[in-house]
């Protein structure tokens, strides 16, 4: 990423992973927060590169991450990214919290890096900048 926003994706992901509410590991809340964050990303990207472009990059980001987290290896043809993440939610439940956090961070960072490799860091910053804006932490939301 460019010098001004180098840490923006990492900070946003850290905020996302700071969710500590609900259940023993908060898997469902964490998964929901992940989906929210993913929607923030796609809402910025899909109008520009299309759903097809986002899907391909996401699939590759997951595939790369699954080298270390084999339980992530869910076929991307399963449905939309959101649907895929819902699937992943189920997977989170069976894993250690720390492992899940690392896996989520890896997928998201892989995605951003893949995008930056293709269209450059400055344009990636430009397109995803609003998605990295500090979101209301899920821990502060009302959890039903």
């Amino acid at each position: 990423m460019s010098t001004t926003n180098t840490n923006a994706p990492r900070e946003a992901i850290q905020t996302l992973l700071a969710v500590r509410v609900g259940g023993v590991n908060g898997a469902s809340v964490l998964a929901q927060a992940t989906i929210d964050r993913w929607r923030d990303l796609t809402s910025q990207l899909e109008p520009v590169i299309g759903t097809g472009g986002v899907k391909v990059l996401f699939g590759r980001a997951v595939r790369q991450a699954s080298a270390n987290y084999p339980w992530l290896a869910v076929p991307v043809e399963d449905g939309s990214e959101a649907a895929l993440l819902v699937t992943l939610m189920g997977r989170f439940a069976g894993e250690e919290r720390a492992t899940v956090e690392k896996a989520i961070a890896t997928v998201l960072l892989n995605f951003v890096e893949l995008l930056a490799t293709l269209i450059g860091e400055s344009l990636t910053d430009r397109l995803l900048g609003p998605a990295w804006a500090p979101a209301t932490p899920a821990s502060e939301r009302e959890i039903p």
Partner: peptide
């Protein structure tokens, strides 16, 4: 594909990423 277009068009000096989503916007 937009990804390729954005990748290749950036090779030109006139492409100013600072204008993207500010004074110009891509819509797929």
């Amino acid at each position: 594909p937009p990804l390729k277009m954005l990748r290749y068009q950036q090779q030109f000096s006139f492409f100013d990423p600072r204008k993207v989503n500010k004074s110009l916007r891509y819509v797929n």
